[in-house]
Amino acid sequence: MTETIVIAELSKGEINNTTNELVSAANLLGNSCTVVVPCTDSSVADKAGKISGVSKVIAAKSSVFENYDAAAWAEAIDSVAPSGIVVTSASAQSKDLAARLAARRTISVVQDVIAIEDGKLSTPIYSGKAIQNVSVNGDSVVSIRANTFAPADDSGSCDVQVIDTTGNVTTALQEMVQRASERLDVSEANIIISGGRGMGTPANFSHLENIADKLGAAVGASRAAVDTWDEIPHSMQVGQTGKTVNPNLYIAVGISGAIQHLAGMRSSKYIVAINKDADAPIFQHADYGIVATWEDALPVLSSSLSDLLA
């Protein structure tokens, strides 16, 4: 029997659907899956008990889980689940945790896994320009890209065991600076609409926001936009030196499709490009390309979406 330990992924204090994807991935790596839920209140873990394919749920309860601290989280989680193949999500925070958990046990970590076949793990290398397939001997920690494994359904039932745990906190949170906008961050969104230098001015991003509001999307940007306009913060940047995103839909507006931009978004399930230059490289990667200026195309897109969503 190969044991796997899934570290539940939480957002806004709740177990999110990525956790169901992690369980699917874990069951390709082993045949007995324990979900560990880092929490301050163990009732949060109940949701994990409903995921099918789970044999055990541990609510790892500790005040250290109030704020993220890599060292304390690794210690507290490791103490409730010290053996087995560990599976985490590949969010920025969980990759950090995955590396700590592996190092703690002096085993290796394989990050950003996008496929598992016959025990072999596939990960993008060179920003997705190639794929590397590896095999692992013994236990390892594996982080899984969201949106790549079909989620396990919620028809299971499994008891939750609460274990009190703790760890040594090494960083002190001084302040949490809320984001200026209420809008989703690109790293959390299922739909992203991004603008590039072709938007002309930062004020024109309001046209992207208008569509984002209709779709519940996040607004992203190319590096040229971020570097040119102070109003467009680096947190919006998608690409090699920005965020790597993997949404269901990525709409690139006035973005040429430079290799470093593609590095951050090429694995999106569907890509739509709006660009006035029919030869822009972005069109080679777009499922749906619209050769037009955004000034002309966005109003049509906006009203068509309104009709469809009405």
Binding site: A70, A71, K95, D96, A98, A99, R100, A103, V109
Partner: peptide, 12 residues
């Protein structure tokens, strides 16, 4: 690799 494991790994 894009992994980002080295920093937290050596810290641990």
């Amino acid at each position: 690799t894009g992994a980002g494991s080295t920093g937290p790994g050596i810290a641990e």
